[in-house]
Design a protein around this nucleic acid. Structure first.
Lengths: 163, 163
DNA sequence: CGACATTAAATGTATGTACATAAATTTGCA
DNA sequence: TGCAAATTTATGTACATACATTTAATGTCG
């Protein structure tokens, strides 16, 4: 559906204004879809992403610092997301023997099993981009990269992360 | 900068996976920039959006229901955002005389002045899309609309709203 | 009229982000 | 050696989203 109809705003100042609204709207749309899907498995999107990072390390542990680095969401709070995964017995937390400041975080067998269940469900493939041709997907990548031209202000930038 | 470099992931499964990550990343990038800018004026993005809706109604009042409808963020909580604007004396809240269930919300002169200050600052124009040509902006709109093809599940969808 | 559903807004709970600060440990250098 | 700085994680606060429930007012229909 066209964005004009989607948000019931018949006109925009120009294609630029329309594009920025369309971007934010479409990403919100995607995120809500994904979040709703993950909820049926008792996970939030950030929790799922942390679990995937931990599986990538498995059987080695990860530290909170590593999670933050991989999430690329530099300012956010991995500690509390790990809290929730620990409550659900999907990860374990033990003080790192080599450096008692650090904490070793590991995915449990239950965590691995949950990831497999989710991935086997085919959830991950229904993300909207399947309606693009390969060429259109390439075009989209070019345009998005252009929008992020001139990252000039040096502030730490956000990466909400997702499959 | 290319998304590969931005998130330091050298390869993706395909252009589709890259596109979805690029979309989420780019919108997060945009939102963080905008949120940071608005913070210098003591506002969050949702607060700014509510203020703009109220200005659109001015001098008529709006109800919470109208705000929710205009925000297009159907499930979210306009009530508490109005709380914060009221604390800052940017809006007023009075029980609607015609229907004592409803609440009339109005932007104050201070609120109108703040909006003008923000808009005069030229903040709104620096949103990334200025790096696209008009034709590219049009292309982007077409691609995003395609991604939202098949809104089939009937769930209420999200619209984080912004300029 | 009066029980009951509907509507409008507010409130409660869980989760997450952003940012500042604290607490514990380790490092490094005078 | 000893103390300050750096590192690593956790905690606190403000704000927002998502969703369920509550409260008050209004509508409806027997």
């Amino acid at each position: 559906m066209r964005i004009e109809d989607e948000i019931k705003q018949p006109t925009f100042r120009d294609e630029y204004q329309k594009a920025i609204i369309n971007l934010v709207y479409t990403t919100g749309w995607l995120q809500l879809r994904q979040a709703t899907a993950f909820k049926t498995f008792g996970l939030t999107l950030p929790q799922f992403n942390i679990l995937r990072i931990l599986r990538g390390q498995h059987p080695l542990p990860a530290t909170v610092a590593l999670l933050i680095d991989r999430m690329l969401d530099k300012t956010s709070n991995a500690s509390r997301i790990v809290d929730r995964l620990e409550e659900k017995k999907l990860v374990t937390r033990t003080v790192c023997p080599a450096n008692r400041r650090a904490v070793d975080i590991r995915i449990t067998p239950a965590g691995l099993e949950l990831l497999k269940t989710i991935e086997d469900s085919g959830l991950m493939e229904k993300n909207g981009t399947q309606f693009l041709t390969p060429d259109e997907a390439r075009q989209l990548n070019v345009l998005l990269d252009k929008i992020r031209t001139e990252d000039g202000d040096g502030t730490t930038l956000h990466q909400p992360s997702c499959e």
